[in-house]
Design a protein around this nucleic acid. Structure first.
Lengths: 231, 231
DNA sequence: CGTAGAGGATTGTTCAACGATCCCTCAATA
DNA sequence: TATTGAGGGATCGTTGAACAATCCTCTACG
């Protein structure tokens, strides 16, 4: 009986936790991620609420969730827009990543660590690369780093980085050169994973720092050119 | 002319037009921070909405904002309550603090650093201690660490920690032994500041780590006792 | 003593309305 | 021609009301 009650408690998370606003925000989030709503797009309460068949209040709550994730920006009396990252935003994202991710690696205790998640993300990236799915490689890459942060076993840290990685996707979408952007990092992720498997935190941290510096440089370079085109 | 336009653009930021929901959440946030609404308090829509003269919808929007900040928890059909942190929450808060704050110190470049903010917080703490205002000492203590994080010059990192420190205040209100809790850390803050003034990052980081470990231990010890009493 | 149920109070959700603000258009003026 | 100012339409911000759903308390009954 206790077993069954526990199972029920697990299921409850699936049922009750999905409010209408959360489902709406899920839809919008994936639309934004896939580029259906490019950065800068205004999301009208009327049209979206009408199309999805939800009330304005519910929609505004969904907007609020996504605003909190920094995917949308809210301008008073003007509505919400898909965020357009500035170059400074991208730099700050990488500054935060470097600070936190390196600190996570440094703060690891003695090996062995639970590296299944990291290995899974590496496999995911390799599979996507084999099929030429470079967007998938980018996603797997983000998964790798999310799993890395998960090693810190801190809910708050993980949540911060979830939001940072979601923002990073916005930048990737503007850049839109997924192969050139993501391909080189498959091998570097592998190297980081191997260093961790060897229990060599110091090497892993140094690889990670180099990775992030290079990635920032490359993203900013392409991003600056791209932003210059549009504006 | 371009000069003046630039000045005006700077001012636009502090024109600060905010919605009433945000203003309401500002009020409630500071009330919670100062302990006017202790953890566990239920915030009734009717009474608060009536007292502040805003409609239920607007108030609920303010509640949602604060719920996102983890200051309130929402229970279905029961309303919102000022968050009561668990011991695990407190531990995670300190885990995050240690990760981020130490990484900030480690990531500092070459001295000198802009330490005016830190010195100001130290002075604030000393002044409060002189007057026996131990709650003020706790506030100054939080200011010290907020200024410390500001040295990273990362907006996202600063925002994460702002929210973490706001949560920490919830714990302090439960513990409610401000003198025993905060007094010992005035001297340690001074030591950290002095190490930074000497440009000795390594010493500063090690002092900081020791500080956080001791503080966590002390808070959790008292906190566990306190929670045991009530529950 | 324990339990079922009635009733009141509170929250959940939606809708309609009105004022406020923004943006676009167009005419008037230097 | 370029700039200013006045409309007007569209959209957002906020309120108030209404009704359903849920919770809490108190009472009555076995």
């Amino acid at each position: 009986m206790a077993e069954q009650l526990k199972d029920l408690a697990d299921d409850r998370a699936l049922l009750g936790r999905t409010s209408t606003a959360e489902r709406v925000s899920d839809i919008l989030r994936s639309r934004i991620a896939e580029g259906y709503f490019p950065p800068g797009t205004r999301l009208s309460e009327d049209s979206i609420g009408g199309a999805l068949g939800v009330s304005r209040n519910t929609l505004r709550e969904a907007f609020r969730l996504l605003t909190h994730e920094r995917l949308l920006v809210h301008e008073l009396n003007r509505g919400v827009f898909v965020r357009v990252l500035t170059v400074e935003d991208v730099e700050d994202i990488y500054r935060t990543r470097r600070l936190v991710e390196c600190a996570v690696v440094r703060g690891l205790g003695e090996p062995p660590y639970g590296l299944e998640g990291l290995a899974g993300a590496v496999a995911e990236g390799r599979a996507a690369a084999r099929e030429g799915d470079w967007k998938g490689v980018g996603t797997a890459n983000i998964h790798f780093h999310r799993e890395l942060v998960a090693l810190a076993a801190s809910e708050r840290t993980a949540e911060l980085m979830r939001s940072v990685f979601a923002e990073l996707r916005l930048a990737f979408h503007v850049v839109d050169e997924p192969e050139r952007l993501h391909e080189p990092y498959i091998a570097r992720n592998v190297a980081i994973l191997e260093a961790l498997q060897d229990g060599d935190r110091q090497k892993a941290e140094s690889l990670l720092a180099g990775y992030l510096d290079d990635s920032l440089e490359r993203v900013v370079e392409v991003y600056r050119r791209r932003v210059g085109e549009d504006g």
